[in-house]
Amino acid sequence: NITAAIYDEIQQEMKRAKVSQALFAKVAANKSQGWLCELLRWKENPSPENRTLWENLCTIRRFLNLPQHERDVIY
Results as ranks from 00 to 15, higher is better:
38 E>H: 09
69 H>N: 02
63 F>N: 00
50 N>K: 15
7 Y>W: 06
22 A>G: 06
1 N>L: 03
41 R>M: 04
34 G>E: 12
67 P>F: 03
65 N>Q: 08
41 R>L: 09
37 C>E: 09
13 E>Y: 00
52 T>G: 11
14 M>T: 11
24 F>G: 00
12 Q>P: 01
49 E>W: 06
71 R>M: 03
38 E>F: 12
26 K>I: 02
26 K>D: 11
3 T>L: 06
23 L>V: 05
7 Y>P: 01
39 L>Q: 07
2 I>W: 03
65 N>A: 08
26 K>N: 11
55 E>N: 06
65 N>S: 15
49 E>V: 04
58 C>T: 12
67 P>A: 06
10 I>W: 00
4 A>Y: 15
58 C>E: 10
34 G>H: 10
63 F>R: 00
61 R>M: 10
44 E>D: 11
55 E>L: 08
16 R>V: 09
7 Y>Q: 03
34 G>A: 08
5 A>E: 12
46 P>W: 11
38 E>Y: 11
19 V>R: 05
75 Y>L: 08
18 K>V: 05
36 L>Q: 01
39 L>I: 14
15 K>Q: 13
2 I>N: 05
46 P>H: 02
51 R>G: 07
13 E>M: 00
33 Q>E: 15
22 A>F: 03
29 A>M: 06
20 S>Q: 13
5 A>C: 15
31 K>N: 07
8 D>N: 02
29 A>N: 11
25 A>Y: 05
71 R>E: 01
4 A>N: 15
72 D>F: 04
21 Q>I: 03
45 N>A: 03
30 N>G: 10
1 N>T: 14
67 P>L: 03
53 L>D: 13
56 N>C: 14
34 G>R: 10
58 C>Q: 10
18 K>H: 09
22 A>I: 14
56 N>T: 09
9 E>D: 11
69 H>T: 06
15 K>H: 15
59 T>S: 13
14 M>I: 08
48 P>H: 10
28 A>T: 06
58 C>Y: 04
27 V>M: 07
2 I>V: 01
63 F>E: 00
20 S>M: 08
74 I>G: 12
51 R>D: 15
66 L>E: 09
68 Q>L: 08
9 E>A: 11
60 I>T: 08
9 E>V: 06
25 A>D: 03
68 Q>D: 07
30 N>K: 13
31 K>F: 07
27 V>I: 08
16 R>M: 10
29 A>Q: 02
49 E>I: 06
11 Q>L: 06
66 L>V: 06
12 Q>F: 04
39 L>A: 13
59 T>N: 02
43 K>E: 07
31 K>E: 10
29 A>Y: 10
27 V>Y: 15
69 H>E: 08
71 R>Q: 03
39 L>T: 06
60 I>R: 00
16 R>F: 05
2 I>Y: 01
72 D>T: 04
14 M>Y: 15
16 R>E: 11
72 D>L: 05
73 V>M: 09
70 E>A: 02
6 I>L: 11
31 K>L: 09
52 T>K: 11
69 H>L: 03
59 T>Y: 05
26 K>L: 05
75 Y>T: 03
56 N>G: 15
49 E>Q: 08
5 A>N: 11
7 Y>K: 08
75 Y>P: 01
57 L>F: 02
62 R>H: 13
12 Q>Y: 09
25 A>N: 02
22 A>L: 12
19 V>M: 04
74 I>E: 13
31 K>M: 06
21 Q>E: 09
73 V>W: 09
70 E>L: 05
45 N>V: 08
37 C>K: 13
65 N>K: 13
19 V>E: 04
10 I>Q: 02
38 E>T: 09
20 S>T: 07
11 Q>N: 15
53 L>I: 11
42 W>F: 15
44 E>H: 15
17 A>Y: 15
37 C>G: 09
66 L>F: 12
31 K>Q: 03
33 Q>M: 12
54 W>L: 10
12 Q>H: 04
68 Q>S: 13
17 A>I: 03
74 I>S: 01
67 P>T: 02
61 R>T: 08
51 R>L: 12
43 K>D: 02
2 I>E: 00
22 A>D: 04
3 T>D: 04
29 A>R: 02
60 I>K: 01
43 K>A: 07
3 T>Q: 06
19 V>F: 01
34 G>S: 11
25 A>H: 01
55 E>V: 07
68 Q>F: 12
36 L>R: 00
57 L>Q: 02
39 L>K: 11
15 K>P: 05
12 Q>S: 08
59 T>V: 06
5 A>Q: 15
57 L>V: 04
19 V>C: 06
38 E>M: 07
32 S>N: 05
10 I>T: 03
26 K>Q: 10
44 E>C: 12
13 E>W: 00
38 E>S: 06
71 R>V: 01
3 T>M: 14
5 A>T: 15
5 A>S: 15
11 Q>D: 04
35 W>P: 11
3 T>C: 02
25 A>F: 03
3 T>N: 15
57 L>C: 04
26 K>A: 08
61 R>K: 06
4 A>G: 14
75 Y>E: 01
35 W>K: 10
48 P>M: 14
9 E>H: 12
